[in-house]
Amino acid sequence: MRNVWVVLISVGVAGFAVSAQARELMPNERYMCSWGAGTAARAQELKLAGVSLYAARQKIHSYKFAKSWMRMMAMGITEQTYDSPTRIKPEAVRESFYDDCVKYKLARK
Rank of each mutant, 00 (worst) to 15 (best):
Cys33Val: 05
Ala56Glu: 01
Val7Trp: 05
Met32Pro: 11
Leu48Asn: 03
Tyr104Ala: 14
Ile60Phe: 02
Leu48Met: 00
Trp69Met: 08
Lys105Thr: 01
Arg30Tyr: 07
Leu53Glu: 09
His61Ile: 10
Lys59Gln: 15
Glu95Gln: 11
Lys105Val: 06
Ser19Gln: 13
Ala22Trp: 00
Trp69Arg: 10
Pro85Ala: 08
Arg42Ser: 12
Met70Asp: 12
Ala74Pro: 09
Ala22Thr: 03
Arg30Met: 10
Glu91Asn: 14
Phe97Leu: 03
Lys67Thr: 09
Ala92Lys: 09
Leu53Phe: 07
Ile88Tyr: 02
Asp83Lys: 10
Ala41Asp: 06
Ala14Lys: 03
Ala14Cys: 07
Lys67His: 13
Trp5Thr: 09
Ala49Gly: 06
Pro90Trp: 00
Ile88Gly: 08
Glu29Gly: 00
Lys64Met: 14
Ala20Thr: 04
Ile60Pro: 10
Tyr104Gln: 15
Ser10Cys: 05
Met72Ala: 15
Ser52Leu: 04
Glu79Asp: 05
Lys109Trp: 08
Ala40Phe: 06
Arg2Ile: 12
Asn28Lys: 13
Tyr31Lys: 11
Ser68Leu: 14
Lys59Val: 11
Asp99Asn: 15
Leu25Asn: 03
His61Cys: 08
Asn28Phe: 12
Ala56Trp: 06
Leu25Pro: 01
Gly15Trp: 01
Ile9Cys: 08
Tyr82Lys: 02
Gly36Cys: 00
Ser19Met: 13
Leu106Ile: 10
Ser96Phe: 15
Leu48Thr: 00
Leu25Gln: 06
Ser52Asp: 04
Tyr31Asp: 11
Glu95Thr: 11
Ser84Ile: 01
Gly38Lys: 05
Trp69Pro: 02
Arg94Lys: 01
Ile60Val: 01
Val18Asn: 02
Arg42Phe: 14
Met32Thr: 13
Gln44Ala: 02
Ala41Tyr: 01
Ala14Gln: 00
Glu29Asp: 01
Met75Pro: 08
Val6Arg: 02
Lys109Asn: 09
Trp69Val: 06
Val13Ser: 07
Tyr104His: 11
Ala37Gln: 02
Gln58Trp: 10
Gln44Val: 09
Lys109Val: 09
Met73Val: 12
Gln58Phe: 11
Ala66Cys: 09
Arg71Ser: 13
Arg2Tyr: 12
Met70Tyr: 14
Ala43Leu: 06
Tyr54Asn: 14
Arg42Val: 13
Thr39Pro: 03
Thr78Val: 07
Val4Ile: 12
Thr86Leu: 14
Gly12Thr: 05
Met1Val: 12
Asp99Cys: 07
Val4Ser: 12
Ala74Trp: 06
Lys67Ala: 12
Glu95Ser: 10
Phe16Leu: 11
Ala40Thr: 07
Arg23Leu: 06
Val102Pro: 04
Cys33Met: 01
Met32Asp: 14
Trp35Thr: 03
Asp83Leu: 11
Ala41Ile: 04
Glu91Val: 15
Lys103Met: 08
Ser52Ala: 05
Arg2Phe: 14
Gly15His: 07
Ala22Gly: 07
Ala74Leu: 08
Pro85Val: 05
Arg23Ala: 03
Leu25Ser: 02
Pro90Lys: 00
Trp35Gly: 05
